[in-house]
Structures are given as structure tokens and as C-alpha cells.
Amino acid sequence: MKKIAIIFSFLAIQFGFSQKIKKAEVIKDNRTTEQKFELDKKQKELFNGKFEQFMTALKASDKKTMESLMSEKTKSMVTDKVYENLSKDINFTRKIVIYKTGYKSFMTGENFPMIQYKYADDQAKPDPKEIITAVFEENGKIMGIKPYKQIK
């Protein structure tokens, strides 16, 4: 009789702790997974115009104009030394043309419009030796400019 009681209590405990099966619910996700890879013509014109204004101000060392074109997020981090290094790394005598456009992803998960520029006389294949990357906010304010030189 004790064996039957032990077996019965064991089975009762098993049924008591067993999981209940729930019906799976389908949740509709309204987020879009489509990601743009290129900037449209209107965006290119806006961002390129702001970049050209910034380059003109950088060439003339017009700090007030440069700060007016910069994003509030980055304005506080940029010092005179940064402007000085940027003007040293960019060759103002060579013509700059758009190389690529797209979006730059940050660690926060945000995507910002980006334009990469190359010098018009740089014919290196498959990629140019010198690239200037400019990242913008949607309103056209400049978040950052980074010159890159490929060294072999």
C-alpha cells in the first residue's frame, strides 16, 4: 500500500509541475526592414552644398561659419586643434567629387546619411587612395568629416 501511495504522489507531483501548452500567437511587426543604401538627388544636393560651404569656411579659417554648419552633438567636441588637423589633411588645391553615398551605422543603432568624396585626379583602382567621408544629420548639419589616406 505504501508503494502505491508513493507512486501516486510521485505522479501527482509530476502532473502538478507540468507545463501547460499555450497556443502560439502571431504578432504583426509594423517596422520596415527596407534600408536605403543610396541618398536621393535632393539629399545629395543638400548635403553636398553644406559640405562645400564648410570646406570654403575651413579654407578661410572662418570658425563662426564652420560652427553654424556643424551638428549640436559634435560642436562641443570640436576644438581649434581639430580644425587645424582637418585643414592639414585636406588638399584644397585639388578638385573634390562625390565618390559614394549611403548611410553610416553607429554603435547606437542609428543610421546617418553619408557622402564619400575623392579627388577628381585620383584614378587608383579599385578604390581611390584618398577619401574624405562626411556624415550628416537629416537636416543637413555636419556630424563629422574624416579624411582617409591609403598607405601601402
Rank of each mutant, 00 (worst) to 15 (best):
P128Y: 02
P147V: 00
T108N: 05
S105M: 12
Y119M: 08
K141W: 04
G144E: 08
S105I: 15
G109N: 05
P128E: 11
Y103K: 00
Q116I: 10
I131A: 13
Q116W: 14
K125W: 14
A120K: 13
A134M: 03
Y103M: 03
K88F: 10
K141N: 09
A124E: 05
Y103I: 02
D122H: 03
M114N: 06
R94D: 12
I142W: 00
A124D: 07
K125E: 09
F136V: 03
P147L: 03
G144S: 10
P113T: 08
Y117R: 01
R94N: 13
V135F: 00
K141G: 13
F92A: 11
S87V: 06
M107I: 14
I98F: 05
A120S: 07
V97E: 04
G140V: 07
Y103E: 02
P147I: 00
F136Q: 00
P147K: 04
Y148G: 15
G144L: 09
T108R: 03
G140E: 00
K95Y: 13
K95V: 12
Y99A: 06
I132T: 05
K118N: 06
F106A: 15
S87Q: 04
N139T: 05
Q116G: 13
M143F: 06
D121N: 09
F112R: 12
I142D: 08
D89S: 11
E110Q: 09
A120R: 07
Q123G: 11
R94H: 08
N111R: 08
P128A: 08
Y103T: 01
G102A: 05
D121K: 08
K141Y: 03
P147E: 06
F136L: 02
D127C: 13
D127R: 15
P126Y: 14
G144K: 04
K149Y: 09
I98C: 06
Y117L: 01
G102S: 06
M114A: 05
T93N: 15
K141V: 07
L86N: 03
I90Y: 12
N139I: 01
A120I: 04
